[in-house]
């Protein structure tokens, strides 16, 4: 018994008494062929699975292209009220690629936050921070109101009531040659209006929220 076990332990097929074994051979041809056939099958399967998977997953890692869009002359916007402007954030898909932004001139009395000091105009995205329905500015109430689930935001886009988890997103703005321009890539803000790279609606940015909902490569502003 001990002799047999010692034989089986040998790494040479010749010592293990396998018929047709060659001198110095450690893997039988039959075993090698089985392995080779399985590997060839795996390579063939991977050859069509991996590219297809990469094709489907690829858009996650592709950075979206954005641009500065002209939204009107300086006089078109006041300090105290919002003017809706329609901007195309996804060119080439018609109405679906458009969204509305509410724009007003920065009012140093209200927009005291240091993050706003570099922005000449405040452009609020109408995408609700709950699950993304379009909010509307109600002038009489001085509130943004969402029609879907009752989210309400104040003049600065901060949540007043309802289910939203953070303030409304914003668009960067700048002034060029007497015209106001809006950058079509949003950025998100937390409840203290600190800026973050854009997050999807429903993702809080206070506390550990910014780590639970990491910024994605596709949505980063270059």
């Amino acid at each position: 018994m001990a002799n047999k076990r010692a034989k089986q332990k040998s790494k040479y097929t010749l010592d293990r008494g396998i018929p047709g074994a060659f001198e110095g051979e450690t893997v039988t041809r039959r075993r090698f062929m089985t392995g080779a056939a399985h590997s060839a099958g795996a390579v063939a399967a991977a050859a069509f699975t991996l590219p297809a998977l990469g094709f489907a997953v690829g858009p996650i890692f592709k950075q979206e292209r954005h641009s500065w869009e002209d939204i009107g002359p300086l006089e078109a916007f006041s300090e105290n009220n919002y003017i809706p402007v329609v901007v195309t954030i996804n060119p080439g898909v018609g109405e679906v690629g458009k969204t509305t932004a509410y724009v007003r001139k920065r009012n140093p009395a209200i927009d005291t936050d240091r993050y706003d000091s570099t922005t000449p105009y405040i452009a609020i995205s109408t995408r609700c921070a709950h699950v993304g329905c379009p909010v509307r500015w109600i002038d009489a109430a001085e509130r943004f109101v969402c029609p879907c689930h009752g989210g309400v935001y104040d003049l600065l886009g901060r949540r007043v009531s309802g289910p939203p988890v953070r303030p409304l997103d914003r668009f960067p703005t700048r002034v060029r040659a007497g015209r106001v321009q809006l950058y079509t890539g949003r950025f998100s803000v937390n409840s203290e209006l600190r800026r973050f790279s854009p997050r999807d609606p429903g993702e809080p940015l206070d506390g550990i929220g910014q780590y639970l909902y990491p910024s994605r490569p596709s949505a980063r502003i270059p």
Binding site: P59, I60, N90, V96, P198, S218, A219
Partner: peptide, 11 residues
């Protein structure tokens, strides 16, 4: 992003 195939709703 996977479902939308990008950060925004597109074609």
């Amino acid at each position: 992003d996977f479902l939308r195939s990008g950060p925004e709703f597109t074609a």
